[in-house]
Amino acid sequence: MTSRTFHMPNRIDAVDPMVLALKGQLEGILADETMFRFDICLSEALANLVVHAKTDNENAQIEVTLDFTESIVKAEVSDPDGAQAFDIRDNATELSNVDEMAESGRGLGLILECADAVDYGMVRNRNRLSMTFLQRT
């Protein structure tokens, strides 16, 4: 198992560079289909966190930890210090229930649809979203 930890500013312009850096760690390891699901989930999770996890500390960082082998990837996203707890499993709308013409409301459902497992809870005094991806060969 290989582990890597990354930090990103709590800003929307930091999301895409962070996701690309994370994907870079998994290049040549994940199949295209798994990489696609990873890209979707990390993009949605980080953007949701930046938009909704407001904190008093503008400099609070978002921490992302990757643990991976050739068959499984676990991405753990820790909320910035001071953010309110937000369990996406309690707030997601099933994609089949989203109005086709809606301009928002698909992100959390996409995470639940694309990740093989999703967990959320307090770890070492910080709220953490955990997403697991299995290689489907």
């Binding site: 890209d39 993009s43 953007a47 809606a102 301009e103 698909r106 992100g107 996409l110």
Partner: peptide, 16 residues
Amino acid sequence: TFLDSSGLGALAGILK
């Protein structure tokens, strides 16, 4: 190369 839910939402808004 990549489109997320916000991109899809933008397209829905344009269609509307």
